[in-house]
C-alpha cells in the first residue's frame, strides 16, 4: 500500500436513497452492491427461467459472475497536485504520485494518463514535453533514457506493480497531449483480480537558460477502467 493512503471502509448498504424510490412489484432494476457477510456474486434480473425473455423483454447481469468479492473497483492517488517548487536552470526538479488500484470485483483493469497541454505559464510560455537524451529518445508512446542535465523538458517515469515494462531502468516518456489529440497511454494494467496494487509515477522537469520566468501549470488526468 502506498504510504499516505487511507484504505476506505466499504460499507454494504441497503438499496435506499432520498432521491428515488424503488417500485419492487415492477422491478426491472438491479441494485448497486449485493449484500453478503463475506462475498457477492453478480446479480441477474429480468429472466428467472429460460424462455421468459419474450415476456420480460430484458436480461440484466451486474458484476462478474465468477468473481467473489464485495470490493468495488477503485482507484486512488496520494496527492491532488505535484509541486515542482522553484525551477532552476539545468537542475531537474522531480516529485512523485502514488497510485493504487483495487480491482476486487472487476476482472482486470487499466489506468491510462494524459495531460491537457504541456506545462504552461500565465504568459503562455510553455515547457515542452521532453524528448529524452539524444542517444535514446522518447515520445508519448515510447520510453527513453533521461539522465543528462542538459536534456530539458517535462516527462514521467513509472515503477511498481503492473506498470509497462518499457519503464524498466528508470526510463521516461512524454505525457500524451490532449491538445494534440494524442491517445492516453497505459501506466498500469492487470488482467487478474487484485487489491492494493500500487505504483509510483515520477514527474520530472528540467529547464534551460532560455526558459521564460514564470509559474507553470498543467493538468494530468488518470483514467481507471475495469476490463469487460
Amino acid at each position: 500500500m502506498v504510504q499516505g493512503f487511507k484504505r476506505p471502509a466499504w460499507a454494504v448498504h441497503p438499496m435506499t436513497s432520498d432521491n428515488y424510490q424503488i417500485d419492487w412489484p415492477n422491478l426491472n432494476m438491479g441494485a448497486g452492491l449485493p449484500s453478503s457477510s463475506s462475498y457477492n456474486l453478480g446479480v441477474t434480473t429480468g429472466q428467472i427461467a429460460p424462455g421468459l425473455y419474450s415476456s420480460t423483454g430484458y436480461k440484466v447481469r451486474a458484476g462478474f459472475q465468477y468473481i467473489h468479492s464485495i470490493i468495488p473497483f477503485s482507484f486512488m492517488i496520494d496527492k491532488i497536485a505535484v509541486d515542482f517548487g522553484s525551477l532552476t536552470v539545468g537542475t531537474p526538479s522531480t516529485d512523485t504520485i502514488g497510485l493504487e488500484v483495487n480491482s476486487g470485483s472487476a476482472g482486470g483493469y487499466s489506468v491510462t494518463t494524459q495531460e491537457n497541454n504541456p506545462l504552461t505559464s500565465t504568459a503562455t510560455s510553455t515547457i515542452a514535453d521532453t524528448t529524452c537524451d539524444p542517444g535514446d529518445t522518447c515520445d508519448e508512446s515510447d520510453a527513453g533514457t533521461w539522465t543528462q542535465n542538459t536534456t530539458y523538458g517535462f516527462g514521467y517515469s513509472m515503477s511498481g506493480i503492473d506498470v509497462p515494462s518499457e519503464f524498466s531502468g528508470g526510463k521516461y516518456k512524454q505525457f500524451a497531449d490532449i491538445s494534440l489529440s494524442e491517445a492516453p497511454q497505459a501506466v498500469m494494467s492487470g488482467s487478474n483480480v487484485g487489491v492494493g496494487k500500487t505504483s509510483t509515477m515520477t514527474l520530472k522537469v528540467n529547464v534551460s537558460g532560455t526558459q521564460a520566468a514564470g509559474t507553470y501549470e498543467n493538468i494530468i488526468t488518470f483514467i481507471a477502467t475495469p476490463t469487460y
Binding site: 499516505g4 493512503f5 487511507k6 476506505p8 466499504w10 448498504h13 438499496m15 426491472n28 432494476m29 438491479g30 441494485a31 448497486g32 452492491l33 453478480g42 446479480v43 429480468g46 425473455y53 423483454g57 430484458y58 436480461k59 440484466v60 447481469r61 451486474a62 458484476g63 462478474f64 468495488p72 473497483f73 477503485s74 482507484f75 486512488m76 492517488i77 496520494d78 496527492k79 491532488i80 497536485a81 505535484v82 509541486d83 493504487e100 483495487n102 480491482s103 470485483s105 472487476a106 476482472g107 481507471a224 475495469p226 469487460y228
Partner: peptide, 30 residues
C-alpha cells in the same frame, strides 16, 4: 493542501444487458 489523497470507487464495474427494442431498464450505480 496538495498532499491529500484522492480516491474513487464504483460498483458495479460491469453491466450486461440483453434487451428488446422499445424496452427500458434501470440500474443503480454506487
Amino acid at each position: 493542501a496538495i498532499a491529500q489523497s484522492l480516491g474513487l470507487g464504483i460498483y458495479p464495474p460491469l453491466l450486461e444487458v440483453t434487451i428488446m427494442p422499445g424496452k427500458s431498464i434501470t440500474q443503480v450505480y454506487k
